[in-house]
Simulated assay, not measured.
Amino acid sequence: MKKRIISSINHNLNNAIALLDAIDSDTYKDVSVGPYYSSIGSHIRHTLDFFDCIINGLDSNNIDLTARKRDEILSTDKSAAIQHIYNLQETLVSYINVNTDYLIHVTDNMGQGKITVNYTIESILSHANSHAVHHYATIGYILDNLGIDIKIPGFGYNPTTPVNKREGI
């Protein structure tokens, strides 16, 4: 199961690389689209932060999703983001044969303070993948508002969305 989850994540991360290869740096950093005025780069950085929290917390068995680094270089430098994705993919592949038959403590703030719950590695990785897809959808909204038409099949859509409604950006 872990192998399939990591393969799915890496497929989605490859879609992010395809996107970054298809847009210029100004588009990556553009913050002109409301209502949130966030850039494509800030959404990419945010999704990478989520994965980094997982990686950084595994050894201590304490993943803190509120301890994001928010490295602004990833928000503004496409090359740095692409390299970060490659490094992340390599790390994720290294987990395929690691014993994960235990519960992992995951801390997050759901709006009323921090709370810690138990996950498996498979469940937190699945959560991170869904989280990335959600942000990819927002990126699609930004691109549409900027009048940029890029086709990456399935980008920003949950795989359970019916195919006739899942065009991608």
Score class of each variant (00 low, 15 high):
N99Y: 06
D26N: 15
G113F: 01
I85T: 05
A80P: 03
V98A: 08
G57A: 09
E90H: 02
H105S: 15
H84C: 13
D77Q: 13
H84Q: 14
A67M: 10
N99G: 03
Q83C: 10
E90A: 05
S60W: 01
E72T: 13
G34C: 03
C53M: 07
D77C: 06
G57E: 11
I121C: 10
I55M: 14
K29Q: 14
G57K: 12
D64C: 03
V98K: 12
L48D: 09
V33A: 14
K69G: 08
S60K: 14
V106A: 15
K78V: 02
N62V: 13
R45S: 05
T116Y: 02
S60T: 15
T116H: 04
L88R: 06
T120E: 08
L103N: 14
L92R: 13
L58C: 13
S42G: 04
T120A: 10
V106N: 09
L65I: 05
P35Q: 03
L88Q: 07
I104R: 07
I121M: 12
D71V: 04
Q112R: 04
R70V: 11
G57F: 11
Y119P: 01
Q112Y: 08
S60N: 13
F51P: 03
V117I: 13
L48V: 03
D108L: 05
A67H: 08
Q83M: 07
D101C: 10
S39Q: 09
T107W: 00
V93E: 14
H105Q: 11
N87C: 00
L88M: 14
N99P: 00
S79P: 00
I63S: 09
K78M: 14
N109P: 03
G41F: 05
S75E: 15
Q89I: 03
I96Q: 09
N62Q: 12
Y86N: 12
Y102G: 09
Y37R: 12
N87I: 00
I85L: 01
K78R: 14
K114D: 11
T107V: 04
V93K: 05
V31E: 10
H46R: 05
S42H: 09
H84V: 01
N61T: 04
Y86L: 04
T120F: 06
V117M: 07
S42R: 08
I44Q: 07
E122Q: 12
R68M: 06
L103C: 06
S39H: 09
H84G: 06
S60A: 15
L103S: 10
D52Y: 11
S60M: 08
E122H: 02
G113L: 02
Q89H: 01
E122C: 08
N118V: 01
S75G: 13
D64Y: 07
Y119M: 09
N61W: 02
I55C: 00
Y36S: 09
Y119S: 12
M110C: 11
Y37V: 00
